[in-house]
Simulated assay, not measured.
Amino acid sequence: MPRLFTVSDSIVIDVPPALAYRAVSRPGDMGRWSPENLGTTDTSDQEPAVAGTTFVGRNRRGRFRWVTRCTVTAAEPGRRFAFRVHAIGRDRPRLRGPIATWEYRFEPEGTGTRVTEIWTDDRRSWPAFAAQVFDRIATAGSTFADFQAKNIHITLRNLKRELEREAGAGPGTTDGTRPATS
């Protein structure tokens, strides 16, 4: 089976694009929705990040914790937000190299916004066999593409629930599921 380098999913959230963008473009808040990300090491800046902003993301998968250095590559209010993960480490992001790119697109749909989350595996230089072995160890049996597809679905569902609740737009998820908790 060929290696899949990009996965995505989308959801319609009953808030304007500017509001959805503002939430997602504050990396320190991502831990509120993501099943794996815990936010950033510096959460003092509550303004949306701009292109070129560098931040250190905190992450958790089971009992494992690690940090990543990320750089914002696109910051188009109400339209697109993206960042590149380019270093990783247990306590400090010391191991440098292309890891992944995360992108969020915001498109008006009816009275709300279609938010699309895209994960791209930037480990292009890794041999397929090495990536497959590493991925299955790091994800307890999945490829990173399958693992991230599940994470994206959970993140979008949680983002919808929270933004709609904050906006008073509705009860949150419409599929009867409960949000993931830490």
Rank of each mutant, 00 (worst) to 15 (best):
Y104C: 12
G39M: 02
D29F: 06
L19M: 14
W33L: 08
V50H: 10
T173I: 10
K150S: 10
D42R: 02
V50Q: 15
E162L: 08
A51L: 03
L19N: 09
L95Q: 09
R79A: 13
V56S: 07
A75Y: 02
G141M: 02
T40C: 05
G112K: 06
C70Y: 01
P35L: 06
P179L: 09
A169P: 04
I88F: 02
P108F: 02
D42I: 03
R165F: 04
D91T: 12
K150H: 10
E107N: 06
R96C: 04
V50G: 15
T116V: 13
D175F: 04
M1Q: 13
A145R: 01
P108S: 14
V12R: 04
T68G: 08
P98G: 10
E117Y: 06
R79D: 09
R94Y: 05
P48A: 06
T181C: 11
T40G: 04
R63S: 13
M30D: 13
L4W: 08
G97V: 02
V15L: 04
R80Y: 01
F64R: 15
A74I: 03
T43I: 08
A131N: 13
T73V: 12
I11V: 14
T120M: 12
M30F: 06
P17Y: 00
T120N: 12
G172C: 10
P16A: 15
L163F: 01
E162Q: 14
R32I: 06
K160G: 01
F81A: 08
G62T: 04
K150D: 13
N158Y: 02
A180W: 08
T73M: 08
R161L: 11
N151R: 03
R32C: 07
N59G: 07
G31M: 05
T68E: 14
G31P: 09
N59Q: 10
R65A: 11
R105G: 13
T6A: 14
I88K: 05
G168I: 07
I137Q: 10
I154T: 13
R61S: 12
A180Q: 14
D45W: 03
R123F: 07
G97C: 07
G176E: 09
A51T: 11
T174R: 15
S44G: 09
R124M: 07
T101Q: 10
E36A: 10
A145Y: 02
P27W: 00
E103R: 10
F5Y: 14
V7F: 05
E36V: 08
R22G: 03
V24P: 01
V133T: 13
I154D: 15
C70Q: 15
A145D: 06
W126E: 14
A23T: 02
R58Y: 00
D121V: 05
D42C: 04
F64T: 13
F5S: 14
H153S: 13
V85C: 10
I88P: 03
V7T: 14
I152W: 00
R178F: 03
A23Y: 00
G52I: 05
P127Q: 11
E47W: 03
R157E: 10
G39F: 00
